[in-house]
Structure formats: C-alpha cells, structure tokens
Amino acid sequence: MTIQKNNPFPCDEETSTKAVAVHCKGITKAYGSGSETVNALNGINLEVRTGELTMLVGPSGCGKTTLISIMAGILDQDEGDCVLFGKNFKSMSDLEKTRYRGEQVGFVFQSFNLIPTLTAAENVAVPLLIRRIDRKTAVQKAGETLKNVGLGDRLNALPAQLSGGQQQRVAIARSLVHEPRLIVCDEPTSALDHETGFRIMELLQYAALCADRALVIVTHDPRIFDFADRIAKMDDGRIVDVSDSPQDMGK
C-alpha cells in the first residue's frame, strides 16, 4: 500500500506561517459534584501551531482526552478560554460552535467510529454531506481522498470488510476530506499493531505537515513520539512539560 505522491493537501512547509491554531488559557474542567468532584483539568495553558504535529501524552486519567475535547469544541470548559483560529468557543452559541466545528475540525478516533452500513467512500463523504454538498460530488471527492490515502481500490467496501489499519485510513480520509484546519486524534494507533500504527502515523504526519493545519494527537504510545514536533506532557490535569525534542521525551 503506497500513498500517492500527488499531494492532495498542498502547502509549502517553508512558507507555512506557523500561526497559532489553538490557544488555551487557564482551562479548568471538573466532573461530578460535591465530594465526588473530579478535577480533570487544573488551569491548562497551551498553544498549538499550524504546520505542527503536537502530541498530548501522559498516564490514563490525566486529562488528555478532556483537553482535546475542549480544543475541538465538543466539550465546554468550566473556566478559562479556548480560542480556535481566533474564535473563542465561549462566545459562540451551540449552533455556531457545531457549524464552526464542521468547517474547521477533523476527527480521528481510537475505534475509528465509521458508520458500519456506509461504504468507505460514503463514510468519507459524511463531512461534506453535513456541509450540504450534493451526494454525487461528495462521494466523488471522498473517492479521490481515499485514493490519496492508498485505498483507491476499496471505495465500496464496508468497514467490516476492511482491516483495522484500512479502517483508520478511511477515518483519516474522513478527517481530511473537508480540508479542516485542525485535526484532533484520540489514540489513533492504540487499536493497531506496531507496523500498521507506524504507517498510520506516517500518513497523519504527511497530511498534517503538508497542509497548513494543526494536528493534535493524544497518545500514551511512546513508540510514536518521534513523529511529534512538540510534545506536551500532562499529569493530574496539568501540563507538566512541553518539549520541542520528542526524543528526550521518549526517554
């Protein structure tokens, strides 16, 4: 399986602006109430830049997933501000947030979250259908995107007919098809074997770095740390370290 050289997400890394994609300041989030309150995030400050692959790492329950949920606008923080490409989620209504998410954010999930009754091409077309692009055009564009992730021959396959790696490729194509500016990935390799996970990371890095967009990956898999441009280490709801040298973090 090869990724086509014809880059579907053209951008010049040299000219990439490395602008701030996400700016989180003083984010707190607690679950439960009273004596059962769990503080998931305790004053998070973090910047994610375009053209970079940022990893959020740390032990289970440290707040990684809560943080990307807030960054992606699918969860509201209790305090603090989270600004995505200059827009503060706090100032948006639910409807505005939903629409903004549909335009600006792509998602890749640990368990792929493909709709089992749709073919690969139809699954990839969903973000375009959400944006009211007609079905024929959407499926056509989805087909092109799938070719670019090496699945040009599996357009009509149902998710159940694909391997785990192939399903994650479909999910990546789905996250890219509408050309969002932020892609959030939750443990994208944890359901895959090492070799497949490595290839998936290559694909993600290629997509993120060749497009003027930011990529945030939540993981606790040290084998993929090398793919990161920056790693934010979290513990107990706080960012304890941000490193531009993933190799050091890996150690």
């Binding site: 992606a72 699918i74 639910d94 409807l95 939903t98 629409r99 998410r101 549909g102 335009e103 954010v105 998602f107 999930f109 979250n113 709709i115 969903v126 973000p127 959400i130 944006r131």
Partner: peptide, 14 residues
Amino acid sequence: LRHFGTLKAMGTTN
C-alpha cells in the same frame, strides 16, 4: 448513539 455522537462532533446540527 456513538455514530450520532460522531455526526454531532463532525458538525451535524441537532
């Protein structure tokens, strides 16, 4: 429900 949630996350309005 998970798929409806996915659609919602991806920008599908209520």
